[in-house]
Write a protein that binds this DNA or RNA. Structure first.
Length: 191
DNA sequence: TGGATGATCGCA
DNA sequence: GCGATCATCCAG
């Protein structure tokens, strides 16, 4: 069962834990890679100072105010990309940051892109997984599925994932909010 | 523990 | 325009 925009058209804090266990597929000219989502973070609107949407829409954050299910990919620290999926109804900002994956397929390609053979180091961080999957700004504001030889897909989980919450990592404001969700038993987490 | 490295955004 | 900031990663 593939996840569609409908899955994301609800409160961000409900979508975030439900994404745990889902499988993310990224198809490119080089091949297809996939991984099981084991760690995410929720970013809200004006009540969340750490969110790019906290001060209203900007050229970058406008995607977060758009229709649910769209990708939100941004460039940070001069060298890394981060992948989110937009949540909430159109007009209401929200997104879920994908922080870590358990590699499932395309490990050879991911290892080549990452420059390491260590399976545990391929996707255990938001920047790492974008590098492993070949994601950059060209993947921003895309719909799930779509057409052509490059596409991004999400397959729902059949299992019930046991997860925990914690404060989000790598932020200095709103650092107390417990908006990080992670698979308790996974050994592919970031941090 | 700090340096790389450049887009983004608020304010001038 | 300008400079502070940044949802990170890696070497040392």
């Amino acid at each position: 069962m593939m996840l569609t925009a409908e899955f994301f058209a609800r409160p961000t804090l409900e979508v975030a834990p439900d994404l745990l266990g889902a499988t993310l597929f990224v198809e490119t000219d080089e091949g297809t890679c996939s991984g099981r989502i084991v760690e995410v973070e929720a970013y809200l609107g004006e009540d969340d100072a750490a969110s790019h949407a906290a001060r209203g829409p900007t050229p970058r954050s406008a995607v977060m105010f758009g229709p649910p299910g769209q990708t939100y990919v941004y460039f940070i620290y001069g060298m890394h990309h981060c992948l989110n999926f937009v949540t909430e109804m159109e007009g209401t900002p929200g997104a879920v940051l994908i922080r870590a994956l358990e590699p499932v397929s395309g490990l050879e390609l991911m290892a080549q892109r990452r420059g390491t053979e260590r399976e545990v180091d391929l996707c255990n961080g938001p920047g790492k997984l974008c590098q492993a999957l070949g994601l950059d700004l060209g993947w921003n504001d895309l719909s799930l599925g779509g057409q052509g030889n490059t596409q991004i897909l999400l397959k729902a989980s059949k299992e019930l994932v046991k997860y925990e919450r914690s404060p989000r990592l790598g932020i200095k404001v709103a650092a107390d909010l417990p908006y990080r969700f992670f698979d308790v038993g996974s050994s592919f987490l970031s941090g």
